[in-house]
Structures are given as structure tokens and as C-alpha cells.
């Protein structure tokens, strides 16, 4: 059974991992790629443990691989080094 159901808008795009991520209770991140989403996959897995979450998203937003216009990127903030 899925650990949690998480809306795509609550996941964060991670440039390094090229994946949408969400915190896993083990300390690592649940991850799912844009390609996974395009193929209709809705399970984001944690690379460190057995847990996974179900991603809630609108399939149409990911239907066109070349288009990223519907994907919200507003939360990708670079870390400001003081």
C-alpha cells in the first residue's frame, strides 16, 4: 500500500535528479521523472527504502513531452549563498 497520496503541485522539481521529489520519512526523497508521468506512472519511489507514494496529477499536463509549459516550476529556488 502506498505510504501517502501527494499532489504533483506539492512535489518539488529537482534539477540534479531530473525528477519531481517529495520528502520520504526515512530522510531521502520519493522521486518520479517527467517521462514516468508522461507514461501514466503514478508511483514515486524512494531509492533508499521500501516506501512509495501515489502521485496525484493531471495526465494531460504531461502528455506532450516537448512541452513544459504546463509544469509549474515556481518552487525551484536556487540556494542563496550568503
Amino acid at each position: 500500500m502506498s505510504y501517502d497520496d501527494v499532489e504533483i503541485e506539492d512535489m518539488e522539481w529537482n534539477e540534479e535528479l531530473q525528477s519531481y521529489t517529495y520528502p520520504c520519512p526515512c530522510g531521502d526523497l520519493f522521486q518520479i521523472t517527467r517521462d514516468d508521468l508522461r507514461l501514466g506512472e503514478d508511483i514515486a519511489r524512494c531509492p533508499s527504502c521500501s516506501l512509495y507514494i501515489t502521485v496525484i496529477y493531471n495526465a494531460e499536463d504531461f502528455a506532450d513531452t516537448a512541452s513544459k509549459k504546463n509544469v509549474e516550476h515556481s518552487k525551484q529556488q536556487p540556494v542563496a549563498v550568503a
Binding site: 518552487k75 529556488q77 536556487p78 540556494v79 542563496a80 549563498v81 550568503a82
Partner: peptide, 8 residues
């Protein structure tokens, strides 16, 4: 909504 690496 910015991050920072030194306590402010």
C-alpha cells in the same frame, strides 16, 4: 521564499 546558508 528564498533559501539561505547562514542563519539570518
Amino acid at each position: 521564499h528564498e533559501s539561505c546558508s547562514s542563519p539570518a
